[in-house]
Write a protein that binds this DNA or RNA. Structure first.
Lengths: 209, 209
DNA sequence: TCCGTACCGTACCGTTCGGTACGGTTATCG
DNA sequence: CGATAACCGTACCGAACGGTACGGTACGGA
């Protein structure tokens, strides 16, 4: 049983990467212990020794994937309005890129599929390890913008959730449902710009409210 | 194979309702042909005769559930700003109620879980039969508001998607992931009001842009 | 009354998958 | 060199599930 934040050996990480690839290509039904053992050139016995059981393997996959992305903690320096806006656009663009990624979609599908019968352990893990990081960095950015008088808001969380909604809309669910029209990364740039425009219209310091 | 829009006999509808209940309580793994036959007091043979195979059953469940909700086609009469706003708030509230419903969440989880390996047939069915209706009625409402000079926008779809994002934010995905904190229907009213406030701030006719 | 139809309940079959056990191989350490 | 440990590949087991077949029953129409 993988409890909290143990690190995995390089060999185990390779197996986890292989498992992620299998999950991406074949969905949950495409990820079997026998198939993983064959694809990763390891034995089923090792898989069970390392990860306990299948649920442990899934949890380890989420933890492993989450450990790959590092939070970008910058914007400590002074920034003007244009830079702040550029940061927000970049955040929006990155968010759309991340959410539309193959591995992200596969893991979210997996966790959502499990959410009904198995409590929601994977779902909580996914939110805790994957989303919280993004939320924190974005809210730090918002806080910096407010401190410099570039935006104004009462509730930081509410402002962030509004920003998120303006950026993502219903794209995430549509992509999760497999709608191909929703996955066009070449449109993300324009969508990011538009979302940030609207965000400034709502929270910009120059507006009336 | 259930092709397009055949209707189901009362007996078949009862079985489909039973299947939905099973899906809600146990997730996809909780819905087996044997279990459904036992719960619905019918034979497996009948299930296969009626719906072809398991996929046909799932598709029939989506079609059956979608056939329950009828589009509310009203607001043909004249309305003032307050009424228009009330309609929008009601739409937002209804949307949140629908998306947080047990059956809706279960079906979305099912379709999302299948989206990876089985093309995305169920996903397309869910969007086509469930969402399109909501989208159309909401956009008709927006159009009526624009015609009366209560709001202004260039692109109807863009305005609607923004409205959707302001209302739902990331609540849908969080509920799909099983996060309990996201499902608090007593907060939907306030969320709907806030979302519509922001929508008017962006698209209201009295604002600068 | 007889026949066909639709249906139920159960038994059955083949497959797949999670999980375990075992023999063989490599490598590190004393 | 001998021993212990880690690991691979394969075989194996039990359970569950999708799908099919069959006997029994109620009903409606000729």
């Amino acid at each position: 049983m993988v409890t909290s934040h143990e690190e995995f050996s390089p060999r185990q990480q390779a197996v986890l990467d292989c498992a992620l690839q299998l999950l991406v290509s074949g969905g949950e039904k495409g990820l079997t212990t026998a198939g993983l053992a064959r694809a990763a050139n390891c034995s089923k016995e090792s898989i069970y020794k390392w990860f306990g059981d299948r649920d442990g393997l899934l949890a380890a996959m989420i933890a492993h994937q989450a450990s790959k992305v590092r939070a970008s903690a910058e914007n400590g320096h002074a920034m003007d309005a244009a830079q702040f806006r550029a940061y927000l656009v970049a955040f929006a663009h990155d968010l759309l890129e991340v959410l539309s990624g193959d591995v992200s979609l596969a893991l979210n599908r997996l966790a959502i599929g499990q959410a009904s019968h198995a409590d929601s352990r994977l779902g909580r893990l996914l939110i805790e390890r994957g989303r919280k990081r993004i939320d924190q960095s974005a809210m730090a950015l918002l806080e910096a913008g407010k401190r410099r008088g570039l935006i104004r808001y009462e509730d930081r969380e509410a402002a962030y959730h509004t920003l998120y909604g303006l950026i993502v809309r219903d794209l995430h669910v549509r992509m999760l449902l497999g709608e191909k029209g929703a996955r066009q990364p070449d449109t993300f740039e324009a969508m990011a710009e538009e979302a940030i425009d609207r965000f400034f219209a709502l929270f910009g310091a120059h507006t009336v409210n």
